[in-house]
C-alpha cells in the first residue's frame, strides 16, 4: 500500500467496497510472482528491490514459520490476476517478547483497494500464525503512513506493549 498522508486521496470512489465471495484467492507465493511483487512494491514505495524480495522468498522456502502469500482476482476471461501480497514471520524473545507473528509488508494494487483484498491477506496470514501456535500479531509503521495505519487499525490492531526508540548515530 502506498505511503500517503491522506487516505481519501488514494481511493477511487467508484471502486467496489467489497468483491463477491470467492472472487479473491489467497495462495503461497512462487518464484514466478516475484516480478509482480517487486513492481507493486516499487509502485508503492518508489524503490525497486528485486534482490530483497528474492531473499525473502528464499527464506520462506527454508523456514516453515515465514509466510509469503499472494492474492489473486480474475479478469473478464476468468484468468488469475495478481492483486497483492503479504509477508510475515514468527519471531521469538526479541526484547523479551514471547513468540508472535510479525507482518513485514503488505501491498494491494491501488485500483483494487477497498474491496476486501487486504483483509483477506491479513486474515490468511493470521490463520498461518495461529497454526504456528502464536496468539498475537504485530507490525510496525511509519507514523505518517496513514493509509497502512488505517488499514491495520480497521483489522482491530492497536498500539501494543512495546515502543520503538531510535537515534541517529552518524
Amino acid at each position: 500500500m502506498a505511503v500517503s498522508s491522506n487516505l481519501s486521496r488514494q481511493i477511487d470512489p467508484q471502486e467496489p467496497e467489497s468483491l463477491p465471495e470467492g472472487a479473491v484467492t489467497i495462495r503461497d507465493a512462487t518464484e514466478a510472482d516475484l516480478a509482480a511483487v517487486t513492481d507493486l512494491d516499487a509502485l508503492n514505495t518508489g524503490l525497486a528491490k528485486p534482490d530483497y524480495w528474492q531473499a525473502r522468498f528464499a527464506e520462506t522456502a527454508v523456514h516453515g514459520d515465514r509466510h509469503f502469500l499472494i492474492a489473486e482476482t480474475v479478469n473478464p476471461n476468468n484468468e488469475p490476476v495478481f492483486a497483492g501480497f503479504i509477508v510475515g514471520e514468527i519471531r521469538a524473545w526479541e526484547f523479551g517478547s514471547e513468540p508472535c507473528g510479525w507482518v513485514h509488508s503488505i501491498g494491494v494494487y491501488p485500483g483494487r483497494r477497498v474491496s476486501g483484498i487486504g483483509t483477506r491477506l491479513f486474515d490468511s496470514i493470521c490463520e498461518r500464525f495461529r497454526a504456528d501456535g502464536v496468539r498475537l500479531v504485530r507490525t510496525m509503521l511509519a507514523r505518517e503512513d496513514q493509509l497502512n495505519m488505517s488499514f491495520f487499525r480497521s483489522q482491530g490492531m492497536m498500539a501494543g506493549a512495546f515502543i520503538e526508540l531510535e537515534k541517529p548515530i552518524d
Partner: peptide, 22 residues
Amino acid sequence: DDIARATFGSITIDTLLKTMRW
C-alpha cells in the same frame, strides 16, 4: 502530540465502532 495526531488520523468512525463491538 505526534503520536496522538497519528492515532486520531488513522482511526475511522467505522473502525472505532467495529473495535468497540469486537
